[in-house]
Design a protein around this nucleic acid. Sequence first.
RNA 1: CGGGGCGUAGCGCAGCCUGGUCAGCGCACCUGCCUUGGGAGCAGGGGGUCGGAGGUUCAAAUCCUCUCGCCCCGACCA
Length: 590
Amino acid sequence: MPSMRYSNSFIHTLFEVPKEAETPSHILLLRGCYIYPTAAGVYSLLPLGHRVAEKIKTILREEMNGIGGIELTMPVLNPAELWKATRRYYDIGSELFRIKDRKDREFVLAMTHEEVITDIARQFLRSYRDLPIMLYQIATKIRDEARPRAGLLRVREFFMKDGYSFHPDFADLDAYYPKIFNAYLRIFTRCGLKVYPIEADSGIMGGTGSHEFMLESTNGEDRFVVCPNCGYQANTEKAVGLKPVPPVDPEPAPPMTKVATPEIKTIAQLMTFFGVAEHRLLKTVAYQADGELVLAVVRGDFNVSATKLTNHLKVVHLDLAAEALLAEKGLYGGFLSPVNLHGVRLVLDTSVDSRNRYIAGANQPDQHYVDVVYGRDFTASEVVDIAEVRAGDTCAACAAGPLEIRRGIELGHTFKLGTKYTAPESMNVTYLDRGGEQRRLIMGCYGIGVERLLAAAVEYSHDDAGIRWPISIAPFQVIISALGQNPEVVATAERIHVALARDYEVLLDDRADSPGVKLKDADLLGIPIRVVVSQRGLKSGRLEVKVRATGLVHQCPEAELPELLAGIVRDLQPSLAGLPYLPETTPPAR
RNA sequence: CGGGGCGUAGCGCAGCCUGGUCAGCGCACCUGCCUUGGGAGCAGGGGGUCGGAGGUUCAAAUCCUCUCGCCCCGACCA
């Protein structure tokens, strides 16, 4: 097994916390000499970080190969034509790096590889006999992220394991999907992580075809809901909750009346001004959806989910409406309303109840209406769920559990793409079926970010002293800390180094530094098992073995060391038992 | 793209308001001695055009203008 002497290694730990780092994984990876910031959101993986990344890649390969995946490598440099063919050249904003070569030909730097793989599929997958197939790679992705953050958690260049499957029809994709799903759970579990597979936004594709694999973390950027009662798990972008229904007004509403509300614009101001609860108000938000003005209306105690609205409208770009666009239609921010609205598209959330009366804007400056009734004072032809789920809302799946909202790090994403890239208006990819009929290829795609997974493992497993690597992805399994320069200590350390290196990846700390330095570094680096060789121990004929994760200390004579380590290593292996696998089915016969 | 913060030695910082022995501290690094169970000790030493450019001034790390870089919050995120 590859082993190393500290004195010959490239490990330069930092005593102090680099000032640019705040997140634990960022701090510890910098201090432990795992990574080096080359530019904002661009990191070098130093030898230690490289080793961990390679461990992760090996697990990814084993699991992908295990479900029939075939590895290939696709280029970072992509001709712009491919991205124009799928429209993504135009639909994606400045996140896509665009460059020109010396002959002025346009290229993009691949942020993902659907275009390239679909082009390859178009070239080679001609017959039903070629299907299904899953091709994957572990390769560099480049994205001009608006805001890289937290070290490796969000970066501009990174390795991604991205897989693409091709199927003769949707049923075949459906049958294949659980294999991927289950392999993903095995991957994260093997990396020592507990992830939540959650239902994710699947965009305009619809269906049940997308999962995100989330590691719960206070440093995560995403939020997802969990139902403690039935186990429903979903991204807040997609999650559906039952909206609490306030008591219905017993009296019929009086006709609506206009009230002067000078400079009263926000929900909070309105609550104070009228002395009413949030759910008595209508919240009207103006968006520009691919350029068109759209008003979204939710009950005052909800917020509009931009994702849900985007999906409903089937648009590519959704932004808050510019003042100019509002003015063009004679509307006033702060006094927007579904009442007195003409010639503007209106989307109403299901939280608005025709049995209750609301306070809403008047679409005139400094004016609101009270006693507004949906159906009487305004109507809407589009009534859909566009509200963001809230903590405490009742789970829509079981109608019982109060939903919890958690923060998480998105480690993986699986997606039934369908014909998004193979459609005639995209790259137009077909094959011939058994009957000689031309049919469209059906795709799935599946991604895992390597560095994010690495950083997430640190977020998940560390303490004040340093990292606590899961043994499956640790840069070394064992560190031998030889304390002092006593000849017997040195000789013993060398001897067990040779012995252990037959079975483990071992780092021998042979530096001349003081014991404090060596022990602190061992903790910081996070190597799972530490063997201390010291004069003190040798006096009683013993070595000390400490398990980083548990802090448990064992003493043993040198002769018994291999056996002791074997047991510890066995116990440290992550268990695959009890994973919530999706049932796998056989594809239907054709 | 909005808001905030920071750029002085490899790392962490002080100095800046009030311009003038302010080029300084700790750690790291190099040499020697010594020490070895939780970031030792002593002695000696190397290292910075104070992010960059321009300006004000007799004089700029310090004041002014512009610019570049980095971090955090938000927006955005295939």
